[in-house]
Every structure is written in structure tokens, then in C-alpha cells.
Simulated assay, not measured.
Amino acid sequence: MTEWVEMLVTMADGPKQPVQGVVVPYRHSDEPWHFYSASYGEDPVLLHLRPGGVRLYRWGRRSRIESMDGDPIFVSDGDTAWHFTSDPQRPRSTSVRNVQFYGPGRELAITRPVTHWVGDHHARPTGPVTDLDCLGRRCWSVDLAPRESRAMPSPSLRLVVDADTGAVLEQHSGDGVTGAAYTDVTVGSPIDPALFTWNGPVVTDLESRALAGRGDPQWDESMQWFHENITAEPIYVPVLMDFTPPLVDLTDPESGSFSAPLGPNNGFANMRARSSGDPVQQNHGR
């Protein structure tokens, strides 16, 4: 039986081979759709899959979404995103982490950061991973409970993932109301990496704020100077965390079973005896 952690590792960084095909979303409800978003001054980049379907190209964390006529809608190299809805000749450019996706299909179109799947509020499987065939390919399916951090009630999530590449081929809500799936898929055929980039003119976040009348020219000029003279790259600071346990609860000295907190608010390390097979099993959790 496939374990959830194996499925997660396979899909964590996006498809390992080029994947392309037609994706069609659905929504079996006439109830109003509620979507909440926030942005810092600039117009938000809101992305959704068109009801009639789109052509989707995936490779690693890279994405390209086209209309059924072949016009680009969204392009991402995994770090930067270009959104073509407002102006096909001058797309909006922003970090992919700022893209807000509404409606079904996000799991197919954009690979989430690994941090989405770990931590206290990550989505947890509600049952075992099952094997199935999808579009003639060996796949895994799993049902995930709603993330605990969400303020609005939401249904569970079912994902169907290609076992060889890690590509998400289907996404369905647990109540059966919404979802998206490939209607056909091609795996392994070469894709020009240039399809995942844009080298033409763009509208940046700073320009978007100014165009919307919400930007302060003084701050925009200062930020531009900083980008040109100091750095335009993100500034990351590595953080050293102390996982030294302040105490250890030795529950069974003979088998070595114990439970210990990993520093302040960092979770626990546990070791217990196996019920069968090898003598001990380690479990690390938050």
C-alpha cells in the first residue's frame, strides 16, 4: 500500500516530466461563489480556469495556461508569474506566491510551496491512499481534510496524482460540487522551456499601484533606487532553531520508547515499540 508521505514527496515539486493536456473545471451549484482576497495596494492577480476548458502545460513548478484557441492566459517559470487577462501584449508581472487562485483546479495549475503541506495546519489524509487508473495511467487518490486554519467552512479535497510524474490530474471537493480534471493528457513529450517565460513589456506591482492611484511616487522612486543600487533579489535570513528537548518522558526503558518536546512550540519527537516486525519505530510530528 502506498503511504501518503510517498505520494506527497512525488508531487511536492511538480511534475518530473513535461505534462500537457486539456483541463476542464466544473461546478454543480447555483449558489453564489464567495472568494476573499487581499493585496498590498496593487490590483490583485486573480486566476481561474475558464468553464469551457483550458490547455495546461506543466513541468516542475513551471506552468502555462492557454485558452482553447491557444492564447496565453497565465505563464510562470516557478518564481515569476505573468497574467495576460488585462492586456495580452503587456501582462501583469508578479511573484508566483502573490497569485490568488479562485475556483477549482489550483492543484493542477500551480504547485504549492512545500510549507503548505507541513506544520500544525496542513491538510491531513482522512483515509488511505488508493491505487486507480486515470486516462490510462497508474495513479494514486487520496482524500484530505480541510485545512484547520481556514476561517470559512470548506469541504474535504480529493486529489488524483500520476504515480510516475507527480502531476495532479484531478481535483474534486469532497461534497462533489466543484472540481477540475484533465480530459486528455500527454506525458514526456518535449516542451520548449521558453513557453514558461515572458520577455516582453510587463506591468509590475509598483506600476500597478501607481496606475490604480494608490501608489506614492516618493516610495516608488525610493524602491526603484533600492532595486537598482542595492538589490532586486528577495532578502532571506536563515533562522537557527533550538530543538533541544527540555525534558524526556521515558515511557518504556526496555524498548526505548519515549516522548520529548522539541524546544518551545516546535512539536514532539516520539519513539515507540513496533507491534510487529522490527523492534522500534520512530515518529516525528508537530
Rank of each mutant, 00 (worst) to 15 (best):
Y26R: 09
E6S: 13
D79N: 12
R112T: 04
D79L: 13
E66R: 00
V23H: 01
W117G: 03
Q89T: 15
G41K: 12
G179P: 08
N265V: 07
N270L: 15
R147V: 12
D192T: 05
L206I: 08
D13R: 02
D143S: 14
R92K: 09
M7K: 00
S76E: 05
D249N: 08
S95A: 09
R124V: 15
M68E: 11
Q218A: 15
S255T: 13
G21E: 01
A180L: 03
R92E: 12
P264T: 07
L262T: 04
R124A: 11
L144G: 10
R61T: 14
S86F: 07
P72A: 13
G166I: 14
E6M: 09
T130W: 02
H121I: 11
D162A: 06
P88T: 06
L144K: 02
V45M: 11
W140Q: 01
R138S: 15
G70Q: 08
S67W: 01
R138E: 15
L250T: 10
L169I: 12
A81Q: 07
I110S: 07
P51I: 03
T183G: 01
S37Q: 05
T197E: 13
R50S: 15
T111K: 00
N199S: 14
I235P: 01
F226A: 12
G41L: 14
D278N: 10
V239W: 00
T204M: 04
R90P: 07
A12K: 01
D216Y: 02
R58V: 03
Q218D: 13
E42T: 05
T197G: 11
D77L: 04
V114H: 06
R147Y: 05
D184V: 06
E221A: 15
A269T: 08
Y102K: 00
D69N: 10
A109K: 00
G136F: 11
W198C: 10
G103H: 03
G41T: 13
S156C: 09
V9T: 12
S76P: 04
T94A: 15
G179D: 06
P146D: 08
M241R: 13
Q89C: 07
S189I: 02
G70K: 05
L56R: 04
S255G: 10
S93L: 03
R214P: 09
L47T: 10
P246S: 08
A123I: 06
D131C: 10
P18N: 09
N199K: 10
A194M: 07
S257Q: 02
F268S: 02
V239M: 05
V142Q: 00
H116N: 09
R158V: 14
